[in-house]
């Protein structure tokens, strides 16, 4: 599976369009790590546990999108966009969407 956020897949010819595919996930951190992040809030700096959380969430969202594309018979997803939002306190949503296509 190939993914780009361009309107084409460079070097390849698009032979079929399958329409929109998307994947989303909502993640929350467990109490212990949230507590540590609270301590980090005093001294500032990167919140590693949240970065990891969002990395996992993003991979999960991409995987769900790819599975949907695969089930449609596509072999690439183009024009991918990400969108993040905080649903509840301490939980965040990552949504990614794109167009499933078949390339030669």
């Amino acid at each position: 599976m190939e993914i780009t956020n361009l309107e084409t897949l460079p070097g390849k010819q698009i032979i079929a369009h399958f329409g929109l595919v998307s994947g989303s996930t909502v993640r929350a951190k467990h109490f212990g790590k949230d507590f540590l992040a609270g301590l980090k809030n005093i001294v500032g700096g990167e919140l590693k546990s949240y970065t990891d959380l969002l990395n996992e969430a993003r991979d999960e969202a991409i995987n769900r999108m790819l599975n949907q594309a695969k089930s449609k018979g596509a072999n690439a997803v183009i024009n991918v966009r990400f969108s993040t939002s905080s649903v509840a306190q301490g939980a965040s949503e990552i949504y990614c969407y794109g167009t499933a296509v078949k390339v030669s």
Partner: peptide
């Protein structure tokens, strides 16, 4: 120019400010 490959790349960070 010919393109050998193209792929999606991402970078992610969460930063907090101090008290």
């Amino acid at each position: 120019k010919n393109i050998t490959w193209a792929k999606l790349v991402t970078g992610n960070v969460v930063v907090s400010t101090d008290y």
